[in-house]
Write a protein that binds this DNA or RNA. Structure first.
Length: 353
DNA sequence: ATTGAAGTACACG
DNA sequence: CTAACGCGTGTACTTCAAT
């Protein structure tokens, strides 16, 4: 879906259309501590984007319409859209509230017309979502999930982009390395510092590293630099991805965390919030009828220094009292061994069953 | 040599 | 001129101890 949260807000309140809309934390006149969840394209003209600190977004455009995240609403809309999407293939995968894959590979017997069929299905799907939900979407079509995802990204907003197997190389090579899923800021920085494309050709004049340049690195080199991720990068730069489209999802952990309005050492504030977090995690655990074995407490101090402490029990447990006592022991350890002000506390349970 | 626990780093929406 | 930095979840890696 295109700029999903902000687009829903526009739909619910048409007065917002044409104005910059930012969904996320409260900017509090520039002192807010949160980030932007999603913003519309008008807001993007000011340089605002997802995950940007809300204080910076406020600096860039204090006149924008800043809205809180109404997750329950987005969840409901998402469910309706996913019901539509699922009708288009038995093989589907929901990735997030606003993203899904469909595997519409034709049976081998009717191969050949696959991409034409895919394109007409995609047009129909976009149309149905728009008619039923009044929201625009973008679809990428490709020989695998990797290519479909990048194509969808490039098609935004309200677009459709189909990349057939013989077009994959030409499609990928001119893209920035950050366009490749799995290459985040850290990996991109390490790659930039390799200066792979300063060997005297025209690439010297390009400001950004392209996937074409990345392809000069051997699989061994990438493996040495980034381990397993490096090998995946090697495959992906060549458009290779065999991961299946699958709807089975296994929850591996449940957690909650909270950032305080101000960094604090006040035990009232810390423990009141921690109790709340424990209750919420426990509620989630009950809702899923899980048991757990590992409890992890997260503590972020002033200056963003983040640590975890965890305890794995001898046996599976599903009891609130055990979470309470073990989690508090772990949190107390933090308080004892570090005198710094605390920015965030969190709790996660894992080894679920 | 293998396994598992604890802790960290990074990615993504 | 620079820094600003949520939340929930998953994967992978390192280190160290126990089996």
């Amino acid at each position: 879906m295109d700029y999903f949260f902000a687009q829903i807000e526009e739909r619910e309140n048409p007065r917002f259309k044409g104005k910059p809309v930012v969904v996320g934390a409260d900017p509090k006149e520039g002192r807010g501590r949160g980030v932007v969840s999603t913003c519309n394209y008008e807001a993007r003209k000011y340089g605002i984007h997802s995950a940007m600190p809300i204080s910076k977004a406020y600096q860039l455009c204090s006149d924008a319409i800043f809205l809180p995240v109404n997750m329950e609403l987005y969840q409901k809309v998402s469910e309706k859209i996913m019901e539509i999407i699922k009708k288009y293939s038995k093989v589907w995968e929901i990735v997030s509230l606003d993203e899904a894959y469909l595997d519409i590979s034709p049976a081998p017997s009717i191969k050949g017309r696959g991409y034409q069929k895919a394109e007409s299905l995609a047009k129909k799907l976009k149309k149905e979502i728009f008619e039923k939900e009044k929201l625009t979407s973008s679809i990428g079509i490709g020989p695998n999930k990797l290519i479909a995802k990048i194509a969808a990204e490039k098609a935004k907003p309200n677009g459709l982009l189909m990349i057939q197997p013989n077009q994959v190389k030409k499609f990928l090579e001119p893209l920035d390395i950050e366009d490749l899923p799995g290459i985040g800021p850290k990996t991109a920085e390490v790659l930039r510092n390799l200066k792979i494309n300063t060997s005297g050709d025209i690439s010297r004049y390009r400001s950004k590293y392209k996937i074409k340049d990345l392809k000069k690195l051997s699989k061994i080199k990438l493996k040495n630099l980034f381990g397993k991720v490096g090998e995946t990068i090697y495959e992906r730069t060549r458009g290779i991805d065999e991961t299946p489209v699958t709807s089975e999802e296994i929850i591996k952990s449940i957690g909650k965390e909270i950032t305080f309005e101000k960094d604090t050492r006040d035990p009232e504030i810390i423990f009141e919030n921690f109790d709340k977090i424990i209750e919420e995690v426990y509620k989630e655990l009950l809702a899923n009828k899980f048991s757990f074995r590992t409890i992890t407490v997260i503590c972020r101090f002033q200056g963003f220094e983040t640590h975890t402490k965890s305890k794995t029990l001898k046996e599976q447990a599903d009891n609130l009292e055990i979470i309470k006592s073990e989690a508090k022991k772990l949190l107390l350890k933090f308080l004892i061994e570090k005198p710094k002000l605390i920015r965030l506390i969190g709790l996660r349970i894992s080894s679920l069953q």
